[in-house]
Write a protein that binds this DNA or RNA. Sequence first.
DNA 1: GCCCAAGTTGACGTTAACGTAAAGGTAACG
DNA 2: CGTTACCTTTACGTTAACGTCAACTTGGGC
Lengths: 137, 137
Amino acid sequence: MNQRSQPRTFSISELAREFDITTRTIRFYEEAGMLEPERNGQTRIYSDQDRVKLKLILRGKRLGFSLAESRELIEMYDPSSDNVPQLHALRRKIQQSRDALLQQLADIEVMKNELDAAEDRCLEALKDLEPEPEGGN
Amino acid sequence: MNQRSQPRTFSISELAREFDITTRTIRFYEEAGMLEPERNGQTRIYSDQDRVKLKLILRGKRLGFSLAESRELIEMYDPSSDNVPQLHALRRKIQQSRDALLQQLADIEVMKNELDAAEDRCLEALKDLEPEPEGGN
DNA sequence: GCCCAAGTTGACGTTAACGTAAAGGTAACG
DNA sequence: CGTTACCTTTACGTTAACGTCAACTTGGGC
């Protein structure tokens, strides 16, 4: 019988392979204070939580966030505060992030349209050069 | 009478002010081969075209693109090629950019939901701490 | 003629985000 | 017991994207 769901763990190279990054990168994120895996002797042992954090960092990267920004985002995910002004500050941060995302959405929208237009021009140019393979060859 | 719409131009500091960047940054983009303003003697004179390119670069930045990537994007906007394979290559690039944008859209979507959840938790925590100002004070 | 604001060209400095090598520990395999 | 496969720390190197002087020119204003 399976011992009641031992909370799964990962080695550093497992995570590296999964997310297609190097182990150096993962250790770097730890240096930066964004991960604190358990240790078995010297060896790092990553929990599911750690894996999720790593995912968040990488998603932040894809969106062009710096590590510092990603760290802030991660910290937003648990309001473990019993301090009212700090919670209000957190809300402001959340709102700021939302604003940034909205700006990105707008940028993406515009850029998508421009890509469409670019492709149209590209196809036009091709139509002129490849007079269309009319009928069977 | 106005001389028939002299194509407007800009000084480097005008553009810097408009986009809230430094002149050094603009010169840097020129070093990087992304802008080639006219000159009046030594002084750079930016056309409307240049201004648009700058805009594109900055939008790229907001989306987390490197200058190299932004350069590619800009180059996509004029298929001034008479070379068929090159035009097909351009189409592939355009498609890749579109894919990247779709990935970003997905990331943003997820992150937006997470921000909503974070705010909910934040509000919950606040509700517990500030028992609600019931009725008049 | 002097000053000031805005422009210029170097050139070196800085920060973020890793890369890359050196030197070593450790568990398992044959 | 030696090799192989991973893991570790330490430390210096690298690239991108600018920042920050320093030293100079140039067109107006008084």
